Computed example of a mutant assay.
Amino acid sequence: MSPKAIQFKANSVIYFQGDMNEKTYILNSGKVILKTVDIESGQEIQDVIQTGEFFGVKSALGKYPREETAIVVLPSNVIEFSVPEFEQIASKNTRIIMKMLKVFSNQLRRIHKQVQNLLSAEEQGKDPEEGLYQIGEYYLGAAKYPQALYAFRRYLTYYPSGRFSDQATPKMAQAEANCQKKGHQGGGIAPAAVTSFDTSTSEGKHLSDVAKKYYNGVSLFSQQKFAEAFKEFKKIIEQSNDEEYKAKSIFEEGRCLFSLGSYDECIKHFTGMIQKYPKHSELLEALFYIGNCYEKKNAKEKAVSFYNKIITMAPKDASVYRKAKKAVSSL
């Protein structure tokens, strides 16, 4: 095998953040940008790859997930290397090594500057926990709901029992509700990002009763109290007339069944959900859970059929598409 040249069309993706891929690349012509998200602010960061510059090197050599998404802006010609091919070329070309060292040193300087900023903020009486919470508040007040949602999720991930967790949870719910109302993407709750939902706070009182119950259920699920969460979602389904939260609760109920290891019930549950809500926002995720249930039951052919169905239906930049592709390759 030898390095190969690949032609990419504009708006195509070379790899996604989170992908596992031991390939490195060099931009021969065209324009490629690397997109990532600032952990604290939720703001998108873009780095432009220069012609002749390598990218994807650290994650390939370190064998860890991609830290960014590589997007082709203009038609581009990219040279793809395997790790052994890259090591062989780099070992014989000191210019490449020097260029890489320059890139890595710039990245290290940027990280050092961020650390210094954090340390100086602490010296001035500010701490990262409060700063992250305040970022969420700022974006919420400015009606920038996707950024607010991201910031509050991050806060609750890093500080699940933090000083502002009671306030952050309902504000996260408020940001999510506004995201959905305005048609923004990313409204789903990250399971590990939620702690207890305090409905006695002033922010919590702005939510409907069914919303409070729903977020209580999400909170219980995040604490791995799957049976209790199942009961909470079941109450919403049986007692509420709010179709939006009923549909969301039906999906969450299925996740609880899967987490409890009730795979036959989970398959039956999600099959019923798809029949009742054929345009459910979590349709593809439901199909993935069904496939995963069959995989757990060692019914590999059925599992693959569901994964393949997702692959034909999902956009290639969707995370469920990548999960399905990975699941098929592992079987």
Score class of each variant (00 low, 15 high):
Ile14Ala: 04
Gly187Met: 08
Phe288Pro: 03
Arg322Ala: 09
Asp38Thr: 13
Lys309Asp: 13
Glu244Asp: 15
Tyr155Cys: 04
Asn178Ser: 15
Val32Ser: 08
Ser219Leu: 09
Asp264Thr: 14
Thr69Arg: 04
Cys256Asn: 06
Pro170His: 00
Thr36Ile: 01
Leu149His: 12
Met273Asp: 12
Phe230Tyr: 06
Leu108Gln: 03
Ser165Glu: 15
Val73Pro: 01
Ser249Leu: 02
Ile267Pro: 02
Tyr215Cys: 02
Gly56Met: 05
Met98Ile: 11
Leu156Ala: 04
Val194Cys: 06
Glu285Gly: 00
Cys256Lys: 01
Tyr133Cys: 13
Gly42Ile: 14
Ser249Lys: 01
Ala168Ile: 07
Lys4Leu: 07
Gln223Trp: 06
His269Asp: 12
Lys326Gln: 13
Phe86His: 07
Val57Lys: 07
Leu101Arg: 06
Asn28Pro: 01
Asp317Tyr: 08
Glu137His: 02
Ala168Cys: 08
Cys179Ala: 07
Thr169Ser: 08
Val328His: 14
Ala227Leu: 04
Leu61Lys: 06
Asp198Arg: 05
Arg95Gly: 03
Ile45Ser: 08
Ala299Phe: 11
Tyr158Asp: 15
Asn93Glu: 15
Asn11Tyr: 05
Ala190His: 06
Phe104Lys: 13
Gly56Phe: 03
Tyr245Leu: 15
Tyr263Met: 04
Leu156Val: 05
Glu130Ile: 06
Ala299Tyr: 11
Asn11Met: 12
Gly217Pro: 12
Glu285Thr: 03
Met100Ala: 02
Lys102Gln: 09
Ala5Tyr: 02
Leu220Pro: 08
Gln147Gly: 02
Ala175Trp: 12
Phe55Pro: 03
Ser41Asp: 14
Leu140Trp: 12
Arg153Glu: 11
Val48Lys: 05
Cys293Asp: 13
Ala142Arg: 14
Ala121Val: 04
Phe104Ser: 00
Glu85Ile: 04
Phe104Pro: 00
Met273Arg: 09
Cys256Tyr: 03
Lys35Trp: 11
Ala211Glu: 15
Gln7Asn: 12
Ser196Val: 11
Glu67Cys: 01
Leu260His: 00
His280Trp: 06
Lys296Thr: 12
Leu260Asn: 00
Lys302Cys: 06
Ser161Tyr: 15
Thr271His: 10
Leu287Gln: 10
Thr157Asn: 08
Asn241Ser: 14
Val328Glu: 14
Ser262Arg: 06
Glu130Val: 05
Pro128Ser: 10
Gln17Trp: 00
Glu80Ile: 04
Phe16Ser: 00
Leu108Thr: 00
Asp242Trp: 10
Tyr133Gly: 09
Met172Val: 03
Tyr145Met: 05
Phe226Asp: 08
Pro160Arg: 11
Lys171Ile: 09
Ile310Leu: 09
Tyr15His: 13
Asn117Val: 05
Ala303Trp: 05
Ser329Val: 08
Lys58Ala: 08
Met313Gln: 15
Ile96Tyr: 06
Ala314Met: 03
Ile71Thr: 09
Ile111His: 03
Ser305Arg: 10
Ile237His: 07
Met100Ser: 01
Met273Ser: 14
Gln7Tyr: 03
Glu80Asp: 01
Lys279Cys: 05
Lys279Met: 01
Val304Asn: 15
Gln147Arg: 14
Tyr64Gly: 01
Phe221Thr: 10
Leu284Ile: 00
Ile96Asp: 14
Arg153Ser: 14
Ala168Pro: 00
Leu132Asn: 14
Lys276Ile: 12
Lys31Asp: 13
Ser12Val: 04
Glu40Gly: 11
Gln114His: 07
Ser240Tyr: 10
Gln147Ala: 10
Ile39Ala: 09
Lys279Glu: 13
Lys231Gly: 00
